[in-house]
Computed example of a mutant assay.
Amino acid sequence: MTKKQGVILYGPPASGKDTVTTALSELDSRYAQFARLKVGTGKATGYRMGTAEQLRELEAAGDVVYSNSRYGNTYVIDAPGLDAAFEAGVPVVHLGQAAGVQALVDGYPASWSVVLLWCPREVTEQRSARRGDSDTTARLAAWDATREDLDAHPGRVWDLTVDTTTSGPQDSARLIDQLLAQRAGAATA
């Protein structure tokens, strides 16, 4: 039996996680962004909006794989949500913290392909402004935190690294799809 496959896209804000995920789902409908549980306010698209009570229940059941707070909200990767995502296809999980990558790889059994999407700080600033973010300053602070995170984990080996200033979304998606195909082939060999 082939182990279930998932993709982790790690990178700073505006590095292309949403855009590359869209290109992946256009390439193959099995790919779908994992909708993290979001406890808080603001943008709801791409999230399962939840309550503090739901978060407490997940924590009590031991079903929180990883959670972090940013932009005044709490974002949760939960085991029941991942179970449902794997039943539907190949989940694509967006993360901006190395600790989250490690927690997911260690805390949820699957064949995870970990992809570093990267862009320079000034590109994050330009992309954030172009898309009309009202919190570009906070996104730049998150970019800085991601850079510090990478510097603090210099031994982290990525399955694939993509510079989204030189690789377009469709090319990035093809590279990720090829990586998963290679890993699936190696697992069955």
Score class of each variant (00 low, 15 high):
Lys4Gln: 11
Lys4Phe: 06
Gly6Pro: 09
Gly6Gln: 06
Leu9Ala: 03
Leu9Gln: 05
Lys17Ile: 08
Lys17Gly: 07
Asp18Met: 09
Val20Arg: 01
Thr21Lys: 01
Ser25Ala: 14
Asp28Met: 05
Ser29His: 10
Arg30Met: 09
Tyr31Leu: 02
Tyr31Phe: 02
Gln33Met: 10
Gly40Pro: 01
Thr41Asn: 00
Lys43Tyr: 15
Lys43Gly: 13
Ala52Asn: 03
Leu55Lys: 00
Glu57Met: 15
Leu58Phe: 00
Ala60Tyr: 05
Tyr66Lys: 05
Asn68Ile: 03
Asn68Ala: 03
Asn68Arg: 01
Ser69Ile: 01
Tyr71Ile: 01
Gly72Trp: 07
Asn73Val: 11
Asn73Phe: 02
Thr74Phe: 00
Val76Leu: 00
Ala79Trp: 04
Ala79Lys: 03
Gly81Cys: 05
Gly81Lys: 01
Leu82Pro: 03
Asp83Glu: 13
Ala84Leu: 10
Ala84Ser: 09
Ala85Asp: 05
Glu87Val: 14
Ala88Thr: 13
Val90Thr: 13
Pro91Arg: 07
Val92Ser: 08
His94Glu: 12
His94Met: 14
Val101Met: 06
Gly107Pro: 01
Gly107Glu: 04
Tyr108Met: 01
Ala110Leu: 03
Trp112His: 09
Ser113Tyr: 02
Trp118Leu: 10
Cys119Met: 14
Pro120Phe: 14
Arg121Ile: 09
Arg127Tyr: 06
Arg127Gln: 05
Arg127Thr: 06
Ala129Ser: 10
Arg130Gly: 06
Gly132Val: 11
Gly132Asp: 04
Asp133Arg: 09
Asp133His: 11
Ser134His: 07
Arg139Leu: 03
Leu140Arg: 00
Leu140Trp: 00
Ala141Asp: 10
Ala142Glu: 06
Asp144Lys: 10
Ala145Glu: 09
Thr146Met: 08
Asp149Lys: 07
Asp149Asn: 10
Leu150Phe: 04
Pro154Lys: 11
Pro154Ser: 10
Arg156Leu: 12
Arg156Trp: 11
Asp159Ile: 09
Asp159Met: 11
Thr161Cys: 13
Thr161Trp: 15
Asp163Gly: 10
Ser167Trp: 15
Pro169Tyr: 13
Pro169Ser: 15
Gln170Leu: 15
Asp171Ile: 13
Arg174Tyr: 15
Gln178Pro: 03
Ala181Phe: 13
Gln182Arg: 12
Gln182Ser: 08
Ala184Gln: 13
Ala184Lys: 12
Ala184Cys: 09
Ala186Ser: 10
Thr188Gln: 11
Ala189Glu: 15
